[in-house]
Nucleic acid binder design. Structure first.
Length: 395
DNA sequence: TCTGGGGTCCTAGGACCC
DNA sequence: TCTGGGGTCCTAGGACCC
């Protein structure tokens, strides 16, 4: 299926996923917690202060709006997974240790593991802080002379080298999937967690991939999955057996055709080693919902602060943008956005605040608000950002 | 048990221009 | 003067991912 076109050379694509990344970084710092259920999430300073005293906060009695960012495998065994509300997690695992997220530390370890990988295989695509795609095709070809006769075995040997390098650089473990494309590799890396290497050859798709839940396909989320289930489709194999025309009828031309290909394990997307950011944003959920009138002063302060932080981010990264966006989430979780495109790109907090303020006027403010966000899009890349002088040149 | 924060991509209608 | 079609930009919302 993948190498049906003989003119296209075979690809060997890896997906590397760090195992319980944030929690594992915390365990490097607090090795005494190894073996215990540990949850990273929330934003209570007190949890950090207690940890520094050697007394760790537990989930018992947690109140607040935090969600689980990562949980150790011990916590997962108790039913605690990412994106779950901490209140619910506390019911399932009251004695699990709760640690606040320390993104600076995670970013540091992220740079370290990616650097270790690039030293072995430079074709790396960033997929966030804890995962990457790696195009191993060149490495597999280069090792043809001295390595095993089977290219998949040579790809597996490369993955083993990468795992070892990541462990030596960071002390952390990762799981790797190797297949002909990104779609399948993303599925494969999950098959033997933690610490595994899984290879799916083109001929394995029917036997290994088709029995899996359709939801395992990256791009089939909660909504699409629920609809598929209503239509009687649960596994990837069942999806693969559906008519393309029928899928297009149900999900639209683009999405339906994509599903049809995905279920067959077909995916041509290249490994992209660099791409420009499209937008930069900051948002915050309040501890308690704020009233647009009664809490106006607080809202204004937070709003201005968000604009300042977005401006800081833009300046630090060297971008400017001309589409300023506002995001509001009401107490009932309904979310609205407004945006305004200004004449020339800006990275200035005051200009952003002014444009976002215009957006705010177009939003109904008749309910309490739980989240406020500011975004700058239509970015000009660094270098293209030149100061626009309001002063005439000749006068 | 009510659901974080940072992103990307897609759709769709209307404005506007050629 | 009227009609048509295509391309691009702007805006709003939503699905999805880590």
């Amino acid at each position: 299926m993948e190498s049906a076109n003989p003119a296209r050379p075979a690809r060997y694509i890896a997906h590397l996923d760090m195992d319980a990344f944030y929690a594992s970084v915390e365990l490097l710092r607090y090795p005494q917690l190894r073996g215990r259920p540990v949850v990273v999430g929330g934003r209570r300073r007190s949890a950090q202060e207690q940890a520094d005293d050697g007394i760790f906060a537990t989930l018992r009695g947690y109140t607040g709006r935090g969600v689980v960012t990562t949980s150790t495998y011990e916590a997962r065994a108790l039913g605690v997974f990412s994106a779950m509300g901490l209140m619910k997690a506390a019911k399932l695992a009251p004695d699990a240790v709760l640690l606040p997220a320390d993104f600076d530390a995670y970013r540091k370890y992220s740079r370290m593991f990616k650097e270790a990988v690039r030293a072995i295989a430079p074709q790396v695509e960033d997929r966030g802080i804890d995962e990457i795609y790696i195009d191993l095709s060149e490495g597999v070809a280069a090792s043809a002379a001295e390595g095993a006769p089977d290219p998949w075995a040579r790809a597996r040997a490369l993955a083993l080298d990468i795992q070892r390098a990541v462990r030596e650089a960071t002390g952390l473990s990762c799981s790797i999937g190797i297949t002909p494309n990104k779609l399948l590799s993303k599925i494969a890396s999950e098959l033997n967690k933690p610490g595994g290497i899984s290879v799916i050859r083109p001929d394995d798709v029917r036997g290994v991939v088709w029995p899996l839940a359709a939801r395992k396909i990256n791009g089939i989320g909660p909504k699409a999955n629920a609809k598929l289930e209503r239509l009687g489709v649960t596994t990837i194999g069942e999806l693969a057996r559906k008519d393309e025309a029928w899928l297009v009828e149900q999900f639209g031309r683009s999405h339906g055709a994509w599903m049809h290909r995905a279920a067959r394990g077909e995916d041509d997307r290249p490994v992209v080693t660099w791409s420009e950011p499209k937008s930069i944003s900051r948002e915050t959920t309040f501890e308690d919902d704020l009233h647009p009138v009664r809490d106006r002063a607080r809202l204004t302060t937070i709003f201005t602060e968000l604009c300042r932080r977005v401006a800081d981010d833009l300046q630090r990264k060297g971008y400017a943008g001309k589409t300023i966006g506002l995001k509001i989430r009401y107490e009932n979780f309904q979310t609205v956005t407004r945006d305004l495109t200004i004449d020339s790109p800006t990275q200035d907090a005051t200009a952003i605040r002014r444009a976002a303020g215009e957006c705010l006027k177009r939003v109904p403010l008749d309910r309490r608000i739980r989240l406020l966000g500011v975004r700058v899009g239509a970015l000009s890349p660094p270098g293209a950002v030149t100061e626009v002088h309001a002063v005439p040149l000749f006068d």
